[in-house]
Design a binder for these strands. Structure first.
Lengths: 213, 213
DNA sequence: TTCAAACTTGAATATCATTCGAAAATTGGG
DNA sequence: CCCAATTTTCGAATGATATTCAAGTTTGAA
């Protein structure tokens, strides 16, 4: 009878599938970071993940879908790294300030991002989706605490996501110097309804380093 | 002999070429607005402009190049429509406020933009390039007049360009209600270093209509 | 009329994303 | 251990289309 061996095999397929799924995201991330989303070919992604080209489509509806998965993966990873640090902060305004500062810095300075910036709406949407829950919570906390005056936290962070990507593109393209990063953070903080002085103060507080991946 | 008719033909080629150039931009704009930049085919664009497919490449290096030209065309047109109105304003802060407000409204409400929003970095870059000179001038004027406190006008407008496109996408996608438009303008004004109260006041001033195209 | 230069043409090419029928694995039951 | 049903993967074939390029046209001056 079936009971003979309760075979823990239940799930072997599922596990292999999950492995392939991860391998595909990792390989797509590598190829896309290296050549850019558009120039990355499904064939190379499949190769590096050691699956057939057609198999990708059993996981992702399309190449764009895959790109979205890759970027959401990247954004969630960063969101968690940030959360690990801000966990211990007392001032809710500082939590938000540290978060956006970290994202701006990461986006402009980590070379892995360079190629991904070109599909800015995909990147900004992934950022909004994955980091939004944290950022919106922080904006609302700081507003409740009387530190910020944000009427619509989702809107404010949506604007921040796109603005960050725009600035990161300009900086990595050499269109603007890296020195704009600080001013960018100040501007983003001003969007929370605080004065420019308060924004400057917040932006210049001690910044503990982000843990490596 | 040649002298017979000094033929004003001098330039017939040039004129035809210029006509073709305009026809191509117009046709590309129509097709791209209708189907989206990616789904627009070079063949259809060439057809509607009444030239052969290959001819496009004597004007534009690539399809992306053409898209950039189309969007810059659109942005310059809007910039001029805005300038026509703000010409008569006295308060330099209001000039900027009216400008960004008009762009946000146009981007979210004119259906011709819908399809173009998807290549947000192309659109935002075109916006920055064509409207930047006006916007940056306005930001600097308002700062000199003591109305704004903008440290880096180009940066502030770069951020605004991307933020506007992000919000426009969210609204046209139905992800956010149209009511966020006003708050979006307020947020953008806050980035200029003024208080939220001042931003609200500026955003709510009488808004003369933008001239039709 | 003639010619070279400048343009245009559109068929041919090259490159992928995506599809799909066949092959291979896996599973549960006998 | 074997089988048939089911699930998953494979990878060659397809289709769509951006881009190239050899050949043909047009132009303006001599």
């Amino acid at each position: 009878m079936q009971t003979v061996s309760p075979r823990k095999t239940e799930g072997r397929v599922a596990r292999r599938r999950a492995r392939n799924h991860e391998a595909l995201i990792a390989s797509a991330r590598a190829v896309m970071a290296e050549k850019g989303i558009d120039s990355a070919t499904m064939a190379e992604i499949a190769d590096r993940a050691d699956v057939a080209a057609g198999t990708i489509y059993s996981f992702f509806r399309s190449k764009d879908d895959l790109a979205v998965a890759v970027l959401e993966n990247l954004m969630l990873e960063l969101a968690i790294r940030i959360e690990t640090v801000t966990n211990t902060f007392d001032d809710p305004a500082q939590v938000y300030a540290y978060g956006i500062g970290s994202v701006v810095r990461e986006a402009t300075q980590d070379t892995h991002w360079r190629q991904l910036l070109y599909r800015s709406e995909v990147l900004a949407n992934a950022m909004f989706k994955q980091m939004g829950p944290f950022a919106i919570r922080d904006l609302e906390n700081a507003t409740k605490a009387g530190r910020f005056k944000v009427a619509d936290a989702a809107l404010t962070f949506k604007m921040a996501s796109y603005a960050i990507v725009g600035v990161a593109l300009a900086v990595t393209e050499g269109e603007m110097p890296e020195t704009v990063i600080d001013e960018c953070v100040v501007n983003l903080l001003c969007m929370t309804g605080i004065s420019r002085e308060d924004a400057l103060e917040l932006a210049h507080r001690h910044r503990p380093p982000l843990a490596a991946v």
